[in-house]
Simulated assay, not measured.
Amino acid sequence: MEAELAAAYDRCRELHRRHGRTYYLATRLLPAWKRRHVHALYGFTRYADEIVDRTDALPPAERAARLDDWAGRFLAGLHGEPVDDPLLPAVLHTIAVFDLDRDDFASFLKSMAMDLSVTSYPSYAHLLDYMEGSAAAIGTMMLPVLESSDPAAAREPARQLGFAFQLTNFIRDVGEDLARGRTYLPDEDLDRFGVSRDDLAEASRRGRATPAIRALIAYEVRRAQAHYAAAAPGITLLAPASQACMRTAYALYGGILDEVAAQDYDVFARRAVVPRRRRLAVAARALLTPTGTPVVVPGPPLPRAVPAEPTLPRTAAS
């Protein structure tokens, strides 16, 4: 049993190391006993994402069946049934150790299922409904592992950080998502800037964004910054041993927006990546930052033509 559990944690750690370089680097700043639990939660979310996105050669019905089967094994494990799976024992152990809210996991799996049938979102409010499970729930399921001096006060910033991280990924990965048949930039925003899905596809094919697309991306960057600003107070509410980790993750994900801005908001020219030297410097600086120091909110300069900063819909801050 112990050997099986250790192997499951190793499997989760390897998934995290291979697919989540930014957050994996940040988790190395955590105490070892916390680290493996973060790997387990990342492994859970990544494996579900793999079923949805890395099996896209299969018909949607078969991918849905695979997700349902895996979710069924997970739910059976939550009810104490034996689980035959390479990583779920670690996830179930972490849930038990911290008494994590099962609703967060159900919400996450619901959003993963949406990716099999939903290809676009009419408005940002609709996208937020999706991100409640795919992003905010991850923030709240991580919070007990990271620990907080005031969990109730830290909950909303944790949700906001989930939104910020995922929107950053959506901004960076427009081309990759298009290749999977999905658009996460809201239709109402595309309409506002006179951009169609065909325009995005053509820009992806040519490797160059039009001025209208760059203005659209700049607008979404500003929206992501609003989520980062709402998340910032939560970092200092975390346990001292967790603050360096989350300062690093916060700065590095925000740094992706800096890279997007540096390439004039052309997310098709190249994939925005924070250079390795900068990642290491950010981690070192976080280690040296005194506990309780307020977090600097990321804010790359925006073109003058970009409309006023978007406000966060009520559903994002409720």
Rank of each mutant, 00 (worst) to 15 (best):
R208K: 14
D198W: 06
A212H: 06
E220N: 12
A179H: 13
A251C: 10
L216Q: 11
R172K: 09
A226C: 03
F170H: 15
A212P: 01
V260D: 07
A152S: 11
R222H: 11
R214W: 08
G181R: 02
E202Q: 15
A218W: 03
G207Y: 13
R172F: 05
F163N: 11
G175L: 11
G162Q: 08
Y265P: 01
C245Q: 10
A261Y: 14
L161E: 05
F268T: 10
R197H: 15
P186E: 12
P211H: 09
L178P: 07
P157R: 09
A224M: 11
T236S: 10
Y250C: 02
Q225F: 03
G194W: 08
R197Q: 14
P211Y: 13
A209G: 05
A232I: 06
V195F: 05
A152V: 15
D198P: 01
L257T: 03
F165R: 00
D258L: 02
S196I: 09
D189W: 15
E202N: 11
A244L: 09
D191S: 14
T248L: 04
A218L: 05
A226F: 04
D177M: 07
R192P: 07
R214Q: 05
E220M: 07
L161I: 08
L185T: 14
E188V: 04
F165W: 11
P186T: 12
R205L: 09
E259A: 12
L257F: 03
S242F: 00
T248R: 01
V195R: 00
A251S: 13
A203Y: 10
T210I: 08
A231H: 04
V267A: 14
G207P: 05
R223E: 06
L167H: 08
Q263T: 12
A244R: 06
S242K: 01
I217H: 02
I213N: 06
R206Y: 07
L252P: 04
A201P: 00
C245E: 11
E156H: 14
A261I: 11
H227A: 14
V174A: 10
A209D: 03
A262V: 09
R208S: 15
S196Y: 12
V174C: 12
Q166R: 04
A224Y: 09
A241K: 03
A158K: 04
S148Y: 00
F163M: 15
A239P: 01
M246F: 14
D199C: 10
D173T: 14
G255F: 10
I235L: 15
D187Q: 14
R182P: 05
A232N: 01
